[in-house]
Design a protein around this nucleic acid. Structure first.
Length: 937
DNA sequence: CAGTGAGCGAGCTTCCGCTTGACTT
């Protein structure tokens, strides 16, 4: 450990140092950073990390303190009716760490909050101050690079906490919470459970969906040209290759159409005066040019110059690692994290391309040593801010240290070695000279036998000084594209030089739809649109993959049909929220708040409750969109996507996508790319036997027996012979229905036999008579059961359906329903007394797993609770939480105004059909008050 | 997307942005 002599003093007292003054506790965000900085600050400083954020809004009910549980807004963690006051809780995984920080603070006489100098960093610092409640002086310490000088300077020049910046962060946080936690439940209700929506992920999904829509709407156009290979032997060319390829560019002075002249609909763009060659025309021209003489009509030379790319930031690193190493965004970040933690590279989550002075020096030293002074520009290169909303709390991603180690010197292997090499090369190259050379365009003319003038063009590139390209060449997303360092030499020809066509061939091309996003190109797009942050790009991809909104096909991101439905819903009903400009506008507001030019509250109010925009338009608030206007969202409509050119609808159901043509339905494979669902494909799917398995023929009826998957799971059914076409329909209106039966639990769709199926279809089985009534055994919604008239009893096993005797059946029906089982179930565990009620608590096993009860209140054990180890204290806590949560006492007070009553009744009829129906059917008299009451439950 | 008969202690899913281990095999 270098004996840094306590660093220079702080806050102006230059010579004193920290020795003899006690210690300052410095808190940074990352443990790796803490280690480095500790070395730079030396004695008098204790450096710890916060490990990111320490507090946040509660994620789920379990994290909400009991005293807030009853609040209507507790679910959101933001008191929307109380000026959007956020409720912060210490993250569960940080509790121990916060305790440790408090202990360290007890031994310090000053607290230096040295979190990153950006919006989130300022907020982390504020949360630390709020949570640690220091009684010692607190200062904010900031730096953008981790070098000894910069750190010592930062320790000497501390400042106050910037609460306006904190307010901007808090506004961002609240908005994201309201968006995510209010809109996601809409998807649960209208599409399927566990889906999610958010400011970032929903736009990311929408981008992928829109790209797919473009691909679906795309019509390919075909166009032809000629490819010639010219021989320059007789041209007097002094050097270069003897032959070179060239492409037909114009005929009789009129340019030949190329891909960009066509619209996405496959038509020639109307503003183009071009010559569209089809195959016949191209072949005809080729033959008419056979044997023609050619000559160079013009030679145009232009200087070629290319500057190095800026050093890596998170997104560009992910792109290049994808293109060159085939790593996903997540893999790239994992490898980079390891490199960072072991001191090989600087911080990998950054939006800055800036290099520290010492890093520039280190890069230039390497250039001189490895490539020589010729490759070194006179002055260091400085890279301008590339990203609009960049917060630049960190440096660019580069090799760590004041001198760089070459890949050979660090001796890393595997992905670490390859990623380090990439970073090292890019950094070094960024301080090298431009590549220079010359590009040449040559035009060649010839006259066909029909007198047409055909003009060909050939381009060449010669690099005379490679500059940075010697060290680093950026990859391309288009595998067909030429890379920057690719030379293409042409013979050095003069105007008028005669040429011979060695070959001349017609070549067909077709326009291609826009390419799908890859992880890397989507991340690039998001960054350009200012959506997401370096720390989240990889996880955004993870989220939309996890939710099933996109899946990967090779490296391409393909949207699912589910994504089409979700995006459709959001676009139609939450258009503002998935507007690509939404985040950009938000950033403007946050900047205003950070500068003190705007207040958070009015803005949040309008977002949530609605109101007038600054432009004077009225805006519906989020609260109404997910509340009063919820009924406007028709699940059927938003889950339907028309198959182009047909009257077939693609529908997204609970059990996956399917096609619907006037009620005729067929499943669609989940991994079918939406742009492949053409009319032909749809017809093909309808024609297929839909994946049902034919088990054989019922010997008694001669009917085919099928095993299928339906909305209640796998089942078997029989095929009724249909009346031949043209034959008159059966007279009796009552349609004969095929027999059906769900498979038993132990059965599998793939292994079920004809024998099984016939047994299943024979149900219900007549067991015999009990008390003069027929008893049947069958399988149902809740499992196997016996039925006698309107009475029923459950059976223990499915097997009993076939084995139960009339005697056993009578026994079951003699016993009253249900009770036997409940009384028989003993408690799993006995606990002590609940201090609140004084009643003994027991743990029981129930339908939803183990729960603790005091006889009156029941509370499920939560994740992490175990029956064996559950303490009395924890059990009492669970019960208390349950009690606090609006006791399940029914009966609402019937004191509502008439107006209010009518609105609640309306809601019930549209959105709560099932709950509204039951009580209404049971109760007689006073229907209005009871239905209002049940709404409130 | 096939069509059947209870009554019972539900609770939870979800956002974006900061940051790492702690777990198990």
């Amino acid at each position: 450990m270098p004996a840094t002599k306590g660093s220079a003093g702080k806050n102006g007292s230059k010579d004193s140092g920290r020795q003899g003054e006690g210690t300052a506790l410095v808190i940074v965000e990352s443990p790796a950073k803490a280690k480095t900085i500790a070395g730079y600050l030396g004695r008098g400083y204790v450096v710890e990390s916060s490990i990111g954020h320490i507090r946040d809004l509660p994620t789920k009910a379990a994290e909400i303190p009991a005293k807030y549980k009853g609040q209507a807004w507790a679910r959101l963690g933001v008191d929307v009716d109380g000026d959007f006051e956020p409720l912060y809780v210490v993250n569960t995984d940080k509790k121990a760490h916060v305790k440790k920080l408090k202990e360290l603070m007890a031994d310090a006489d000053e607290l230096l909050l040295a979190t990153d100098e950006d919006r989130e960093g300022e907020a982390i610092a504020w949360h630390l101050r709020e949570e640690l409640k220091p009684k010692i002086p607190v200062r904010r310490m900031v730096f953008n690079e981790i070098t000894k000088d910069a750190i010592q300077r930062a320790a000497d020049n501390t400042r106050e906490l910037n609460t306006r910046l904190v307010s901007a962060q808090e506004t961002r946080r609240i908005l994201d919470r309201l968006y995510g936690y209010e809109v996601s439940p809409v998807l649960w209700k209208k599409v399927m459970p566990k889906l999610s929506a958010g400011r970032v992920q929903s736009v990311a999904t929408r981008l992928v969906v829109e790209r797919e829509r473009e691909r679906i709407a795309f019509t390919s156009a075909e166009y032809w040209d000629l490819k010639a290979v010219f021989d320059a032997t007789g041209s007097g060319a002094s050097d270069g290759p003897a032959t070179f390829p060239a492409t037909l560019m114009s005929v009789d002075g009129r340019r030949v159409a190329v891909g960009r002249d066509f619209s996405p609909q496959g038509a020639l763009r109307s503003d183009r005066d071009v010559h569209h060659l089809d195959e016949q025309a191209a072949r005809g021209l080729a033959s008419r040019l056979d044997g023609a003489g050619f000559a160079v009509s013009s030679v145009e030379r232009k200087p070629y110059r290319r500057s190095p790319y800026a050093p890596f930031r998170t997104t560009t690193l992910q792109q290049e690692a994808s293109r060159k190493l085939g790593l996903s965004s997540k893999q790239t970040m994992q490898v980079a994290q390891r490199l960072y933690e072991n001191g090989y590279i600087t911080y990998m989550r950054t939006d800055s391309t800036t290099l520290s002075e010492s890093a520039v020096k280190a890069a230039r030293d390497q250039v001189r040593r490895l490539y020589g002074g010729d490759y070194l520009p006179d002055k260091p290169r400085v890279y301008a801010k590339k990203v609009k909303n960049a917060q630049e709390a960190h440096e660019a991603i580069r090799p760590a240290g004041d001198t760089f180690r070459t890949p050979a010197e660090v001796g890393l292997n595997g992905p670490e070695g390859r990623l380090y090499e990439l970073i090292w090369k890019r950094t070094v190259a960024s301080q090298m000279k431009d590549a220079v050379g010359e590009s040449v365009t040559v035009r060649i003319e010839g006259t066909s036998s029909a007198g047409e003038t055909a003009e060909f063009t050939a381009t060449g590139k010669v690099i005379t000084f490679h500059g940075f390209l010697k060290a680093y060449v950026e990859g391309s997303d288009d595998p067909a594209a030429d890379l920057d360092d690719r030379e293409r030499r042409l013979p050095s020809m003069e105007e008028g030089a005669p040429l011979k066509a060695e070959s001349l061939e017609a070549e067909g091309h077709s326009t291609r739809p826009p390419a799908r996003y890859t992880e890397a190109t989507l991340v690039k797009e998001l960054e350009e649109r200012e959506i997401g942050r370096p720390s989240t790009y990889a996880s955004i991809i993870g989220t939309i993959l996890d939710r099933g909104y996109v899946f990967k096909k090779g490296t391409a991101l393909v949207p699912s049909f589910l994504a089409f439905a979700v995006v459709q819903l959001l676009e139609r009903h939450f258009g503002n929220l998935v507007d690509y400009e939404f985040t950009a506008r938000l950033e403007d507001v946050l900047d205003d708040i950070a500068r003190g030019d705007a207040q958070s509250l009015p803005w949040l109010r309008r977002f949530y409750f609605g109101g007038e925009t600054p432009e004077g338009e009225s805006e519906v608030g989020l609260k109404d969109l997910v509340g009063d206007q919820l009924a406007d969202i028709d699940p059927k409509e938003i889950s339907s996507v028309p198959v182009p050119g047909t009257d077939i609808l693609l529908r997204v159901g609970r059990y996956g996508p399917y096609l619907d043509r006037d009620g005729e339905r067929v499943n669609v494979p989940e991994d079918l790319a939406p742009d492949e669902l053409t009319q032909e494909k749809a017809e093909e799917l309808f024609a297929q036997p839909s994946g049902d398995r034919e088990l054989g023929t019922d010997p008694e009826t001669g009917r085919a027996i099928l095993a299928k998957t339906g909305r209640f799971g796998p089942y078997v059914t029989e095929v009724l012979e249909e009346p031949a076409e043209g034959e008159s329909k059966p007279k009796s209106k009552a349609k004969v229905k095929p027999r059906t039966s769900s498979l038993f639990k132990g059965m599998d769709l793939d292994t079920v036999t004809l024998e099984d199926a016939l047994r299943l279809l024979s149900l219900p089985r007549l067991v015999g008579e009990v008390d003069g009534e027929e008893v049947t055994a069958q399988n149902g919604r809740f499992g196997p059961y016996l039925k006698k008239g309107t009475d029923s009893r459950s059976l223990e096993t499915e097997d009993q359906i076939f084995t139960v005797t009339p005697e056993q059946a009578k026994e079951l029906f003699d016993k009253p329903k249900q009770r036997g089982r409940r009384a028989a179930a003993p408690p799993l565990r006995e606990l002590g007394e609940d201090p609140a009620s004084g009643v003994k608590m027991v743990v029981k096993d129930g339908r939803f797993g183990p729960y603790v009860t005091d006889g009156e209140i029941n509370a499920s054990l939560r994740k992490g609770d175990e029956v064996e180890s559950l303490s009395d204290l924890r059990a009492a806590e669970l019960l208390a939480e349950r009690r606090a949560k609006a006791p399940a006492k029914k009966k609402a007070p019937a004191k509502k105004t008439a107006a209010k009553k009518s609105t609640t009744t309306k809601k019930a009829s549209t959105t709560k059909k099932s709950t509204a129906k039951k009580p209404a059917a049971k109760k007689t008299g006073e229907p209005k008050s009871t239905s209002t009451g049940s709404d409130e439950a």
